[in-house]
């Protein structure tokens, strides 16, 4: 019994850290551009397909293929912002949200046209032996996932708090107009945020696809939405919140799948979101916003 709970907790931690990586992208973009980048989940999908192309079609070694994946996703993230979101900086939020939904749809349908809806099998590129601690068995991919996310989170926190570019990001998220007057290049900061967020989504895509080993054009939708839930849960706009929200969500999902019902696990995850938003509309670590009259 204890072993099974431990294994479920570790599973939850693994999915949770993937959610956290994706949630970071949502939260950073929301903080800077004040919009929900609905297409963020589909960047994961693009990342997964890029890795597949790199390894199965171009026969690249693993590391260069991963670098290629991150690069493609970063560029794509910046392009999306330039083409679809930038013209709408001053538009009402509803218009921006609809555009983002359109962008998500666009990426999915392009993938559908190129790769068709038949799932493509993909063999994991991370081959590490499982480790046995006591009676608990931890798979190689789990160890890699946990290690990678921990390193990324530490680096990201340092980047945001200690570097010049990071403080520019914080300034823009605090007050875009004032930041611009202080000589910060707002456009470049926004581009950079999209690039970093998309690179994180690419990493998440790699980890995700090594886990599930099958490629579909809609593969990014569900982790995307769940990661969004995680970001909101933690308080959108807050970087530690996204990390916390991701892990919490992963644990809830894994435990309800194991002990309540596989079919209802999604409903439980979304139910948690609804409850959290009703009790604390700004999320666990989010700041409360005051409407100015």
């Amino acid at each position: 019994m204890l072993t099974s709970i431990m294994e479920q907790l570790i599973n939850g931690l693994r999915t949770g850290s993937i959610y956290a990586l994706i949630a970071l992208g949502y939260t950073m973009v929301y903080g800077i551009a004040k919009m929900i980048n609905f297409a963020h989940g589909d960047i994961i999908m693009v990342g997964a397909y890029t890795l597949y192309i790199g390894i199965a079609l171009l026969h690249l070694p693993v590391i260069p293929a991963m670098v290629l994946t991150a690069a493609v996703c970063s560029v794509l993230g910046m392009l999306i912002e330039k083409i679809a979101y930038k013209p709408l900086r001053k538009a009402p939020p509803l218009a921006v949200l609809i555009t983002a939904i359109g962008m998500s749809y666009f990426l999915q349908s392009v993938a559908l046209l190129i790769f068709s809806s038949t799932p493509i099998p993909f063999k994991s590129v991370i081959n590490l032996n499982a480790v046995q601690i006591g009676t608990v068995n931890i798979s190689g991919i789990t160890i890699v996932t946990l290690a990678v996310t921990t390193v990324i989170m530490i680096c990201l926190t340092l980047f945001i708090n200690k570097t010049k570019a990071g403080s520019a990001m914080r300034a823009v998220s605090e007050d875009r107009g004032a930041a611009e007057l202080m000589g910060i290049n707002v456009n470049r900061t926004i581009s950079m945020t999209f690039a970093i967020g998309s690179a994180l989504a690419a990493v998440a895509g790699i980890l995700y696809i090594c886990q599930y080993q099958s490629l579909r054009p809609t593969l990014g939708a569900l982790p995307g939405i769940k990661a969004f839930v995680a970001a909101v849960l933690g308080g959108i706009g807050s970087v530690p919140g996204a990390m916390l929200g991701g892990i919490v969500l992963g644990l809830i999902e894994s435990l309800s799948k194991a002990y309540i019902s596989t079919e209802l696990a999604d409903a439980i995850v979304f139910g948690v979101l609804v409850i959290v938003l009703l009790v604390r509309p700004s999320g666990l670590l989010g700041k409360k916003k005051l409407v100015k009259v």
Partner: peptide, 8 residues
């Protein structure tokens, strides 16, 4: 694809 382009 058409829907997506229409929305954007």
């Amino acid at each position: 694809l058409l829907y997506a382009i229409v929305l954007i």
